[in-house]
Amino acid sequence: MPVPNLTLPLTAFLILYGIFICIYALYTFFNAYHLIKFGLIGRTTRSIIVVQAGLSLILLIVSLFLVTYQDWTVTWNLTEIFQRDAEQIFPAL
């Protein structure tokens, strides 16, 4: 019986990354919102908001840059991986 050829494109992991980025952006926004709404008026609070929002944005940009720099067109051949692993565990196969 022929073994079906199972492949997994690496772009599937970008969906997970996209969900993570949405959650990250949402929480960063609410973090800044709470500081703006409930923080004590003054230079310290403003500096904290700028630093937190700024660093969050920098991390996001660096992450997006590193991720877009990768080649996501590669496909994982799961059949090959499973067969290879099975042969290593069960050499007679």
């Binding site: 709470h34 500081l35 409930f38 923080g39 609070t45 992450s63 996501w72």
Partner: peptide, 30 residues
């Protein structure tokens, strides 16, 4: 295949650590 996944996992990890630290700090500050 491993390179892109390591970059993805690594960047998600560092962003998550920063996010949690900044939320904890906001909790303290407020």
């Amino acid at each position: 295949t491993l390179g892109p996944l390591l970059v993805l996992a690594g960047s998600m990890y560092f962003m998550a650590v920063w996010l949690i630290a900044s939320i904890e700090f906001t909790d303290y500050y407020l």
